[in-house]
Design a protein around this nucleic acid. Structure first.
Lengths: 214, 214
DNA sequence: GTTGAAATTAGTACGAA
DNA sequence: TTCGTACTAATTTCAAC
C-alpha cells in the first residue's frame, strides 16, 4: 500500500472501511453546496433551494449523514473576538519510530487546530491559534520541544487568511465534470502519474519510516 | 502598523472595524463549545446544555451572530466520498507589487480551500483538494504557474490529516484562564515579545513589499 | 419520488424576579 | 440581565398518491 492510497483509505473513517458507501449524484453535491454556506438551514428550505421535494431532501440529508459523507456540522468563528487572533504554522520533523507518541501528544494539545502529515522537507504541519506571539513561542519551546518525538521545528506566522472555504466540491469547477478524474485528461497521458515533473523538496532523513510507523 | 497587528485588526471583518463589539464571557464560550461539535443543535437544546434559559440562549446566540463572533455555520465533509481525496499544500513565492493580482486570481480558483499569507521562506500557503495527484500537478503547472504574480511554487502532499478541529477556544486550555493573555506570563518577562528567540526561516527577497502591497 | 395534513418543535413577545 | 410562560409560526413526520 502506498502512502497516498493509504491516506485515501483511512480518511474515510473507521479502519477497514474501504467500500464506497454512497454514490453521490448531482443532487447530493447540490445539497452539500447549500450546506456549505448555511449549515443551519432547515431541510424544508434546503429542499426548495435544491429543487427537490421535502421528503426527498430528508432522505438524502439523512443518507449523507449516515454514510459519513457529512461528518458533522459546526460553526465558523472570528478568532480575534475570542482572543486567539495570532495564527502560526509549525513545521515539525518527527524522530523515527516515534510517530505514535507524536500523535498521542497532539491529542493533548487543545490549542492545535490542524495537524497534517506531509511529504517534503518536514514531516508534519501544525496550525495553532494563540493570544499573542509570545504564547506561540512558549508553546513551541516549552511544549512541543519537550516531546521526545519532536526532532526539530520551524515556525511561520500567518499574516492574513486570504481565503477560507469550508470545503471544496468537484462541482465547483463547473457542471458536467465527473468526480475521481483529473481536471485535464491530457495532463497524464497513458494514465501515468507525472510524479517526475512535480517539484518536491528534499526528503528528510528517515523518510522510509512512514511505511512502518504511521 | 506592524504586519501582525494589521492581521489581527483586519481578520475581524469589515475594514475600519477596530473596536471589540462584544465582550465574551464564560457563557458565550460555552455556547461556542457546543456549537463547535453540533452546529445544527436547536437553541432550546443549546440552552439546556449550557445551563441557561431559552430566552437567554436566543439573545446570546443572536448577539454572537450579529457581532460577527460567529461568522457562519457550515458542514464538515469527507473529501474521499466526494472524489477529492488528494490534498496538497502549495507554497508560493509572490512577485513584488503583484499581491493584488495574486489575490484576485485566487478567488477564481474553486479548488483552493485555504490560502494564507505567511512569514518565512515563502509568501503564501495554498491548500487544495483534488481528485488525484495528476490533477494537483496540472493545477500547479498549468494554472498557478501561468499567473504572473507567482514567481515560484513548492508542492507538498498531505499523507494524513491527524487532527482537524473546527476552531480552538481560550477555554480549551482549562477554566479560569483569561483570554488575551499568554499561556505562561513568565515566557515574556517585562512584556517584551521574545521574537529574537523564535526560529524564523530566512526571509525571501523583497520581504518589505508586504507593507505596501498587501 | 411527490404531495398534503397532523403532531411536534422552534421562535417570539411579554411581564416578573 | 435573566427567567418563565404563553402565543405564533415553522418544521418534521407520516400518511396516501
Amino acid at each position: 500500500m502506498t502512502e497516498i492510497s493509504r491516506n485515501a483509505a483511512q480518511e474515510g473513517g473507521q479502519p477497514g472501511r474501504i467500500g464506497i458507501g454512497l454514490e453521490l449524484d448531482a443532487t447530493h453535491l447540490k445539497i452539500l453546496e447549500v450546506l456549505r454556506e448555511n449549515g443551519r438551514i432547515s431541510v424544508a428550505a434546503l429542499a426548495e433551494r435544491v429543487g427537490i421535494s421535502r421528503a426527498n431532501a430528508y432522505t438524502r440529508f439523512e443518507a449523507l449523514r449516515a454514510d459519513g459523507a457529512i461528518k458533522r456540522f459546526t460553526a465558523e468563528i472570528d478568532h480575534v473576538r475570542t482572543g486567539l487572533g495570532i495564527t502560526a504554522l509549525i513545521f515539525v520533523t518527527v524522530r523515527q519510530q516515534m510517530w505514535r507518541q507524536f500523535r498521542a501528544q497532539l491529542a493533548a494539545m487543545p490549542e492545535v487546530e490542524y495537524c497534517a502529515i506531509t511529504t517534503g522537507q518536514h514531516d508534519a504541519m501544525i496550525q495553532v491559534r494563540m493570544a499573542d506571539v509570545a504564547a506561540v513561542h512558549a508553546m513551541v519551546t516549552e511544549r512541543l520541544a519537550n516531546i521526545p518525538a519532536v526532532k526539530a521545528t520551524e515556525t511561520v506566522f500567518i499574516l492574513d487568511e486570504v481565503l477560507k472555504r469550508p470545503y471544496v466540491l468537484p462541482s465547483d469547477r463547473g457542471p458536467g465534470r465527473s468526480p475521481r478524474r483529473p481536471a485535464d485528461p491530457a495532463a497524464a497521458p497513458g494514465g501515468e502519474v507525472p510524479l517526475g515533473k512535480m517539484r518536491f523538496v528534499g526528503a528528510a532523513e528517515g523518510r522510509a519510516q512512514l511505511q512502518q510507523d504511521v
